[in-house]
């Protein structure tokens, strides 16, 4: 068992827990970033055995994370303007 992979699994679990238990949209977002980092870590570990491709993927994951952060935060701002809160429990738009 690779120690790095174990760390990655633990970080991923913590990130998941954060997404589930927090109500603040920004913190949920941070926890998702944490999950992504856990995955990055695993990819880097794998790349030691399987070649550089894993690191390339990490590069792409980071780019996607940046794009996601930009759009996600914009959405959060838009929601905040409308509801004066970032508490995801206080709106239930995600249906229909």
């Amino acid at each position: 068992m690779n120690a790095v992979l174990a760390l990655s699994a633990v970080l991923f679990a913590i990130g998941t827990l954060g997404v589930l238990v927090r109500r603040n949209a920004i913190i949920m977002f941070l926890c998702i970033e944490l999950q992504l980092n856990a995955v990055n870590l695993a990819l880097v570990a794998f790349s030691r055995a399987h070649g550089i491709d894993g690191q390339i993927f990490v590069f792409f994951v980071m780019t996607v994370a940046a794009a996601e952060a930009a759009v996600g935060l914009a959405i959060i701002i838009a929601i905040f303007r409308h509801y004066e809160t970032v508490d995801v429990g206080s709106f239930n738009l995600l249906k229909w």
Binding site: M1, N2, L5, A6, S8, A9, V10, F12, A13, I14, T16, L17, L20, V21
Partner: peptide
Amino acid sequence: ALFVSGGIGGVLVQRF
């Protein structure tokens, strides 16, 4: 939530 995320972590560890 703890159970679910812990489960995921556990399964991942088991996979590794």
